[in-house]
Design a protein around this nucleic acid. Structure first.
Length: 435
DNA sequence: CTAGGGTTAG
């Protein structure tokens, strides 16, 4: 008799869920119950890893129908399916069902829940499950801490991330490279990049070797601070330590040196992606286009944009936003407009960035009626923010449409848009609309 | 059965 669950598990790792399914179906139904649960669990996981999370859930339900009680591993696998499908409400129901059926949740269950809440950006829920874990006498392990820190990182809750980090030793859990990486990112996202760099240095003192993800986090941190020279030093250090850069680290580098004003250097790093025989993705191109924007190199930007189909890379909303904003900067409003309309023809939904950058470019060119019509179109799709109002009001002012400007201003204060961050124009004592 | 990284304007 072959160990079928092992085979199914390897199918999952290779994302061969169809094969996993047929192995399961092909197996005889006369296996001992314990073995068949293991088999089903392996299949659920295989489906989840093959991104067929719905099928995994279907299989989970079929276990119960075949009078086999799902065990804690079945529930964990099902929870992972929920996580993959971002179905956190459903996951909560599974958790409740599990308690009802007297299946004791273990650390895997809690870690899976915490990780799911990280994915759906619900850090309070992640925290609640971390606490729930303690109340059910399950000791948190390195996965619990790391997943929680990541959940806090996504929400820029750097203080919580650090306090979790500090709680690890009292719990006798050793931080590992993932702990450091998540914490460095949390500090960077919380605008504490210097602290993040301190942690990056501290990990080496604690004999945890930085890997490519650590370097990525450090590069992004230095980028936040505009420290582009330090980014170059990190690249030297990486090659000395034989940490191989990948597409993600190059993408981070392009953006980091660009933020330090070194847009040409950013473009060099963009070129090195292909030189290193690595794939470029939409983020690589978008980062390169951002460099072009900073350097006001719009012809070059059009060249990169034109090169995307050949690299089989589809632009997304970020890509278009960068281009629209670049044309705003160089004062080419008709180009902003044509890229904005280009989004629709590619079924890309314009977001608040797309609208605001377009309105700004119309405002700069005193195209008040375009600005107004964009503002109106925007209001039907996305929530205008303080900048949307400011640019549109400013456009009205430039076009001597002061009545329109005033009514927008009133609408803005009525809806409490942007709190106290009001338009400079409206505070200008020379402004005819208000004074 | 469980954990980490990269892209956008004013």
């Amino acid at each position: 008799m072959v160990r079928i669950s092992g085979k199914i598990t390897s199918c999952g790792k290779l994302a061969l869920w169809q094969r996993a399914c047929s192995l399961l179906v092909g197996a005889t139904a006369s296996l001992p119950r314990r073995r068949s649960v293991a088999k089903s669990n392996a299949t659920i996981t295989a489906m989840e890893q093959g991104r067929e999370w719905q099928l995994g859930l279907v299989l989970f339900h079929s276990i119960a129908k075949n009078q086999i009680n799902p065990d804690v591993i079945s529930f964990t696998a099902a929870l992972n399916c929920c996580g993959r499908g971002r179905q956190w409400h459903l996951a909560l129901e599974f958790y409740e069902a599990m308690l009802r059926e007297r299946v004791k949740p273990n650390s895997y269950v809690f870690n899976t829940m915490i990780s799911m809440f990280e994915k759906v950006r619900k850090w309070q829920h992640a925290l609640a499950f971390f606490t729930e874990m303690a109340s059910r006498q399950v000791q948190p392990d390195v996965f619990s801490f790391n997943s929680s820190i990541s959940a806090f990182e996504k929400a820029a809750q750097w203080w919580l991330a650090l306090s979790w980090f500090d709680t690890m030793s009292p719990h006798e859990v050793q931080p590992n490279v993932v702990t450091y990486n998540a914490s460095i990112s949390a500090l960077e996202k919380g605008s504490q990049w210097q602290r993040g760099i301190q942690l990056f240095k501290a990990m080496q003192m604690c004999h945890v070797s930085p890997d490519i993800v650590s370097y990525c986090a450090a590069i992004t941190s230095f980028g936040k601070g505009g420290e582009w020279q330090q980014v170059l030093l990190l690249h030297d250090e990486m090659s000395k330590r034989r940490v191989v850069p990948n597409m993600l680290s190059f993408n981070a580098t392009i953006s980091a040196v660009d933020k330090g004003g070194q847009w040409q250097l950013g473009l060099c790093f963009f070129n090195s992606i292909a030189q290193n025989k690595l794939q470029r993705d939409v983020i690589s191109f978008t980062a390169a286009l951002t460099c072009c924007g900073r350097g006001q190199q719009w012809q070059l930007a059009l060249h990169f944009f034109g090169a995307m189909p050949r690299a089989r890379v589809e632009p997304n909303a970020y890509t278009f936003n960068v281009i629209i904003s670049m044309f705003e900067k160089v004062g080419a409003w008709h180009h902003s407009l044509s890229f904005f309309t280009g989004m629709a023809s590619r079924q890309i939904q314009p977001d608040v960035f797309s609208f605001n950058s377009s309105i700004s470019s119309f405002e700069k060119a005193a195209q008040w009626s375009l600005a107004l019509s964009w503002f109106d179109a925007m209001s039907e799709k996305v929530q205008p923010d303080v900048y949307s109002f400011n640019s549109t009001i400013s456009a009205c002012e430039k076009g001597s449409q002061w009545q329109q400007g005033i009514s927008l201003f009133e609408a803005m204060t009525k809806h409490k848009v942007g709190g106290f961050a009001l338009s400079q124009d409206l505070y200008n004592p020379d402004h005819p609309c208000i004074y």
